[in-house]
Design a binder for these strands. Structure first.
Lengths: 277, 277
DNA sequence: ATTGACTCTATAGTAACTATAGAGTTTATG
DNA sequence: CATAAACTCTATAGTTACTATAGAGTCAAT
């Protein structure tokens, strides 16, 4: 009966006057009556129902365009299908968020490792649980090349990861590997880089599991010192008569590329698995 | 050493030329070298590290502005705090999505009920599990008033719900209630409307549980027929000598406000709990 | 009649890009 | 070396769902 001014309508529905004008413009919700001489909009209370519907569909993640299109077809039959589509969309978003959550927690853990790492050059013995990795073989010896080559190799790893639909979340946690055989031959040769993936990530080409081992670890704060520090680590192994029982791993714990003039500035954990006596 | 053209840089990093130009404009990632005469941008491969960082932080949900601000401060100490903030944000978004998911599934269930409802006016006996509701007492008898008053009352219910921070998800599922005492006095009087909430929604003022009962139900497809159909339902109760053991509920199963000229068009399930013999 | 609250249209801004036009540059090929 | 194809440049407009603002007009109450 009584007409609602745009301000009153907005107030009743916890929205803004501009929003109502915008919906009017889109044709989503036209006021019941517009005074010709002044252009003033007047709504009927029953139009709240339509606004409710708009808000609800918006809440389900639909765009105003889609809502309008659906209103225009007036097709009740298509409602369940539309709802199922939304359900699928929501499910997908939830999975993404879950990945993001994991990524954040990995980063938090890494920064913690970084902050509490033993002094530079200190060697420590640690039990490290099994990890799953996604490997990429560049066929080029990383240690014989420059930081620039390393960047190119990382790009290739990522390209591979993208092709194989690995989530973004994993991209923050890379490393390189020297196979046990190479170590035994006394060669500091690695052609492989990897990403850490979730324990529940599906097994496929390139994915492998590093078993739980005791590791001798040393921390290193520059790409350019890796070789030297790894040398220290292997010297230590020899001196103490340890037996290497798996692959050597260089894990990038933290990257700080924003400092030092855009240069990749890393904090790495070098680790070699040994048989404990 | 070798400079990358903007196209090559984009290709290597799976992004677009425009994006790089945009980042340049924002000052997020300036090319290492710009040829003065032509304005051509040239990047160094090591600048990929910064781009990686940008993408990672973007992935964590940060805005480019925030990323830039953080880069500008060069503050390593603040990283964990920033990460925790992101974690909280993600957690909140996940909860929201979870609510959305529930809302969608409630809607799906409701449309299913609507599609498979017994014929108009048919009375059926159903066991209905316990439900939790959030009630609002309008102090006005809904059944003595017009659809317009009902709309106003719904607005009040929503205002209440918003004040009490009920999630949007619940707004799609409303109803009204006639208390057992009123029924026993033979009065068709209800001043209360409600929203269905989750079983795990916290108890607070206005929240109550409707216990599991056997209900006699009748479906009704217009606001204007509720009284008549409820009458039928109560007649049936009397005829068969049933005993009413709780509150009468009018549950709005589906709303189709988009049809019939913006008018609220409802499909309702009227239900009265009885003692089964 | 006047005041204050309200409403109108039109325009610009938000975030993180994408798309396009029109002009100039680099690279590859003949 | 000329030419064509591919690339890059700046500048502008568009995307979504609004918010904010300016300047002018309108309504309701005193």
């Amino acid at each position: 009966m009584d007409k609602l001014s745009i301000g009153r309508m907005a107030e009743l529905n916890h929205t803004s006057v501009q929003t109502l004008r915008y919906y009017d413009k889109l044709g989503l919700l036209k006021p019941e009556y517009v005074e010709e001489s002044t252009g003033y909009r007047y709504y009927a209370i029953k139009q709240c129902a339509r606004l409710d519907m708009i808000n609800y569909m918006k809440y389900l993640g639909m765009s105003l365009d889609n809502i309008k299109a659906w209103f225009d077809t007036e097709d009740v039959e298509s409602i369940p299908e539309m709802l199922w589509q939304q359900a699928v969309l929501i499910e997908r978003k939830m999975k993404e968020l879950d990945q993001m959550k994991k990524a954040v927690h990995v980063s938090i853990k890494n920064y913690d490792t970084y902050m509490n790492a033993p002094g530079d050059g200190h060697i420590v013995l640690q039990r490290v649980p099994a990890r799953k990795i996604y490997c990429y073989d560049s066929k080029v010896n990383i240690y014989e090349n420059t930081l620039e080559t390393y960047e190119y190799i990382l790009r290739e790893l990522r390209a591979q990861a993208i092709v194989n639909h690995l989530p973004m979340a994993y991209f923050c946690n890379v490393g390189s590997i020297i196979r046990q055989e190479a170590i035994e031959r006394g060669q500091f040769v690695s052609t492989e880089v990897f990403l850490f993936v979730d324990p529940d990530f599906e097994m496929q080409a390139g994915v492998e599991i590093i078993p739980e081992y005791d590791y001798l670890c040393i921390y290193c704060d520059s790409f350019f010192h890796e070789r030297e520090y790894a040398g220290k680590l292997f010297d230590y192994v020899q001196e103490h008569g340890y037996e290497v029982i798996g692959d050597y791993i260089c894990e990038v714990v933290v990257e700080l590329p924003i400092f030092h003039h855009d240069e990749r500035n890393m904090f790495m954990k070098l680790q070699v698995p040994i048989k404990r006596d």
